[in-house]
Amino acid sequence: MRRRNDKDFEVIVKRRKKSGHEESHSGAWKVAFADFTMAMMALFMVLWVITPQNPKQTSAAEQITNPLVDGGAGVFDGNSKTPLEMPGVPVQPNKTEPQEQGKETSKAEPVKYSSPAELKELADLMQAMALELDAQANVEVQVVPQGLRILIKDDQQRFMFERGSVQLNPHFATLLQRLAGVLAKVGNKLIISGHTDSVPYKTVQGYNNWNLSGDRALRARNVMVESGLAATSVLQVAAQADVMPLRPDLPEDGVNRRIEILLLTVKAEGLYRELFGEQQARVDYSGEKAELVLPSVPAVKPL
């Protein structure tokens, strides 16, 4: 509104309109929001404290990247319920689960091999084992009329035993251990023999290739028995010295040094028992007389 007075100058009067929004611009809402935030933080802290912490808990990333077990965890920690079956990895039952009543685990009976076809399958299995161990040059398997002939021998780079001793090379120790695992499932009896070259033994007086070949055969037998082969599976441990060379034209050549394992057929085992057992007639000589001994006949049980 403008007014003029007598002196011709204007007076400008401004009127300010009152507004009702002063209260909405106050700081009261900030206090309420701070109280709400504090209450939420307190709630989260309480929930975190009362939640049980599991140190063995496996993250989702670990479960995804673990290739051995379906559902995470490890095959050795006992937490897994469904371990995946993988070649060469034995799957063991969970020890915490009780065994079913009335069921007992029975050990499989050893299988006896007789026909040439069966022996050929066993020979192929042993050749595959040798290939796995990089021992193709150290293992030779032959099907013979008496059974299966297994030759374990030196190659150009590796000797089975240290020269002139019974110290076994670790490569051949592993080979014998794996071979024992195969033969432990076989019911046929075995004859283990040691062979040397014709180079004379010079270090110890009275100790010669006969002693050496026998000690080496016994060492091979002991390694296999310690690795799971039944002690009753071996019928004989024999010393052959240099009388059965693989190369008669080269008797001093190292190719003749070897351990042989003869897996006997049932028929061959019977012939062996006739030679060395009580199943044949014989004459026992003494200083006083000669006595005929007849084989004992098993008693027949009455019906």
Rank of each mutant, 00 (worst) to 15 (best):
R2T: 08
R4N: 03
E10V: 15
E22C: 06
A28F: 02
V31E: 07
F33C: 06
M41C: 06
V46S: 12
V49F: 01
Q53S: 13
P55G: 12
Q63W: 01
I64G: 02
I64C: 02
V75L: 10
S80N: 10
P83M: 08
L84D: 00
N94V: 11
N94P: 12
E100A: 07
E100W: 13
K103A: 02
E104M: 11
T105S: 05
S106I: 11
V111I: 15
E118R: 00
K120M: 08
A128K: 04
M129G: 12
E132N: 13
A135Q: 08
Q136L: 14
G147R: 00
L148D: 03
G164C: 01
S165C: 07
R178K: 12
G187P: 00
S193C: 02
P200C: 01
N209P: 02
N209D: 04
G214W: 01
D215C: 02
R219W: 04
N222Q: 12
S227R: 03
L235Q: 08
Q236R: 14
Q236H: 10
A241P: 10
D242R: 04
D242F: 05
P245Y: 13
P245M: 14
R247M: 11
E252A: 14
V255F: 10
I259K: 09
I261M: 08
L263M: 15
Y272A: 01
Y272D: 04
E274G: 05
L275F: 11
E278F: 12
Q279E: 06
Y285S: 09
K289R: 10
P295I: 15
A299P: 01
